[in-house]
Amino acid sequence: MTRFAAQINVMPRAEISDPQGQTVERTLPSIGFAGISGVRVGKRITLIVDAADEESARSIVASASEKILANPVIEDYELELTPL
């Protein structure tokens, strides 16, 4: 068994409007930050997984991401694994 740290970055899908990001973007100039666009707000989930190897660790976390950690109807996710 090897232990891996996983980081799952969940973002609203590109074609879906992100009212949180839009609101942050509208606020930035008013507090002096010019030239910023394309703000989108997502979330990051971190966890530790024990698996036989990196491939199976990736498969477990990807499966969990698709089933519950992200909602594929409205969200995309990216997965990073680091051996511990």
Binding site: P19, Q20, N71
Partner: peptide, 17 residues
């Protein structure tokens, strides 16, 4: 029901936040 896959689609944060 949407999360359980019994209905299509999803409910997102209200557009006006």
């Amino acid at each position: 029901l949407c999360e359980a896959g019994l209905l299509p689609g999803a409910l997102r944060r209200n557009s006006g936040l």
